[in-house]
Each structure stands twice: as C-alpha cells, then as structure tokens.
Write a protein that binds this DNA or RNA. Structure first.
Lengths: 205, 205
DNA sequence: CTATCATTCAAACGCTTGTTTGGTTTTTCG
DNA sequence: CGAAAAACCAAACAAGCGTTTGAATGATAG
C-alpha cells in the first residue's frame, strides 16, 4: 500500500523495508520488490546503483534520526544531577519505541533492524558499524559510569544481553502475540516499560 | 573440516549446519554446501529429498537431545522441595550451554537456532512448533507457578524477553568479542551465569 | 559369480536472480 | 519553443539456483 504520489525512490525504499522485514535481505528479490513498489525492475539499479546499496539506504533513512534522538536523549539525561539507570535505558529504548510507533513503516523497520542483528552479513555490519557504531560506544561508557562495581567485561556482557533483548522485544519476535483488544501503541509502550525495569534490575544485580 | 570417514549424510548435515549459521538458510546454496561436504551435488536430494527437509533434519539432529535434556532438568528441579527461579532458568539455559560447548558443531548449531528465531520462515516455524513447542509450554507454566504476582500477560512478556536474550547471548551476537586469552568454554559459562542472574532479577522485578 | 539393491556421479533441466542495454518518454530550463 | 538532462521501460544477459535424470560404481546377499 505505497501511495502512488510518493516518488519512485520513496516507493522503492518503502517496499524494500516491507520485504526485507518479511523475507530477509537475500530472500527479497528485486522483481518482487519493484512489483510491490509499482516501479520498473531497472529502477532500483538506476536510483540506488545496486541491491546492496539499496539495503544501506533503507537503514540510513531511519538510523540517522534514531541515532540522533538517542544521543540527544542521552545528553539530556547526563546533564541532570542524578541520572538513574532507568533514565539511561529510557534514552536508548524510547527513541526506538517512538520509531516503532511511527505511522509510516517504523514498526516494519524495527523488524529489519532485528534481521540485521541476526544475519552475520559482513558487508552490512561494516556499514552499520562505520556509520552508527559511535552511538553504542557512548551509551556503553555512560552505563559504565553508573555501574562502577562492574568490570569492563561484565558490563559489556550485560549491555550485549540488553541490546539483544531490546531488539527482540521491539521486533515482536518470539511466542507472544498481543491481545487483539490492545492497541499496537499500548502493546509497545508496555514492552518498553517491562524492558526498562527488567534491564535495570539485571544491570544492578 | 568435516572428516572423510563420516558418512555422506553426516558430512552433509555438518556442512549444512556450518553454512546455515554463516549465510542463513536461503543464503547457503546446495553447490556451496555439497562442495564443502565433499559430496556430489545430487546427494542432498538423494538422502534428504529436498533442501527444505535438510533444514528440518539439521534441527532434529540437535533439538531432540536438547529438548530432552531441558525437560529432564526441569523435572529434576520441580521435584525438589524449594525450587528457585535461578534453578528453573538454569534448567533451560545449561543444556543449551552444554550444547554450545559440544566439540562437534554445537556452538555452530546455536547460531543456526538464532537464525531460526530471526527468520520469520513460516514453514520452519511450523516444523519447530509442532515438534518442540511443548518444551516452551512446560517451562512457561513452571515460571508462572514461581511468579504468582505476575499476571499471564506480564509473565509471557518477560519469558519472551529472556528467550530472545538467551538466543542472542548464546549465539555470540552483538558487539562483544571475547578476550582472546579466554577460552571458549569460560566465555560461555560466564555468559550463562550472567544471563541467569540477569533474567532472575528481571523476572522478580 | 551373479543378481540386486543402494549409492555416487556428471550433466542437464527449467527457473529465478541481479544487472545492463538501448531506446522511449518525461521533465527541466535557458 | 527546443535542446539537454533525467527518468522510465521492455527486453535481454550471464550466472546461480534447486532439482531430476540416467548411467556408472559400490556393496550385499543368494
């Protein structure tokens, strides 16, 4: 349901997001993709050069803003007198939650993000690490300052677990299906609450 | 490095595990796979019927034993007078840890397992749910008995998060690379300790 | 030894993949 | 308007895919 008044590039990005989330990067073919976007098959290579670069651009479109929001929220928390662990976690999680509630494909993109975690795609990992790795680094050092009782190794273990759990929860993986009576928004907000409480307790343990 | 004295079927299963972990199910081709296993291209279809069924058999080879070990450990814990939350979690996690320390491909298979979580492959999910879904159900009800203060919805949320975190941690996903001075075994044992403490704290919160 | 069955193999099948081509249409702008 | 640039499109390309075939080889049992 990509509306025809969007530009060709936007329709391709939207359809790519949808199909990457559903079928993975290798599993989504350009013919399927261009057909869903209602554009010519050659349009992907014309506008994006290659399928690989289209994948990059799908991430760039969302991650630029998500990373900026996370860093903003982090800076805001660090500026307060007594930042709590929950505040730091919220600075990381709430922007992703907001993204997942975005009307135009945000929830879909979060599923794409989880795919990227799961696929050990070397090319994609390099792209993400080069362009957005500094965000994770800043959060790691903020957590470290809050948890002096943890040595570096333990801290990294726990952050790793949290990042994985966050990805899964946000992407709606696993066995849980929300009650149909509950709206998507309430569903995800509760997920974030649970995750923050859960993660803070685990980090302090 | 599949040794030639293994049977054709075993060499195929070993190479499939390796390649599925590295490249995903769609991303691993039968030509690559049979070449790594040093068998003829047609051997997969001869011995397994199809690539889809080969995927099933890769899971069956490991999950039969893993599920049995988890259920055994769970029954043992439930038989004790005062089973703790940590005991229940250990019953779920330790068999997976042992598998990941198995000399012949266990660690690789855990990565395959994480792939299965991430890929929304309907066919594979159905196979896994039909054959191994009862294990998760039994653990869920055991957790529920331990946590009467949580309603069903909250409990499921938290189990979901734990299952995701476990999968990630065990599969060595995320940013952490172990210190090269540390053995694989110590690395994974610490992961399990952290995960159990983390998960128990989160469940009780 | 021979007949029988299971296994291996090279080759080919039909199909889908990402990408490129060359020409046509549409848009931009002096 | 008219020329240059950008965008679009049908068609074809080479390469790779899972699968099938039919003959060659290996092992098994009468």
């Amino acid at each position: 349901m990509e509306f025809p008044h969007f530009s060709t590039k936007e329709r391709i990005l939207g359809a790519a997001e949808e199909l990457f989330a559903r079928n993975g990067f290798a599993g989504a073919s350009l013919r399927e993709l261009t057909s869903a976007a209602k554009v010519n098959l050659a349009a992907v290579n014309y506008h994006f050069g290659s399928k690989d670069n289209l994948v990059n651009e799908v991430f760039r479109r969302r991650l630029d803003e998500l990373s900026a929001q996370r860093l903003d929220a982090l800076a805001q928390v660090l500026a307060t007198a007594q930042p709590s662990l929950e505040d730091l976690l919220a600075a990381f999680i709430h922007p992703a939650l907001a993204l997942s509630l975005d009307k135009s494909g945000g929830a879909t993109f979060v599923r794409v993000l989880a795919r990227a975690y799961a696929e050990h795609n070397e090319r994609l990992r390099k792209f993400l690490s080069e362009n957005y790795g500094h965000v994770l680094k800043e959060f790691a050092s903020a957590f470290g300052a809050q948890l002096p009782h943890l040595d570096k190794e333990e801290l990294y273990w726990r952050i790793d677990i949290i990042a994985g759990a966050l990805t899964y929860a946000m992407a709606d993986f696993g066995v849980i299906k929300r009650r149909s009576s509950m709206s998507e928004q309430v569903h995800r907000e509760r997920a974030a609450e649970h995750l923050i409480r859960f993660a803070a307790a685990g980090l302090r343990a």
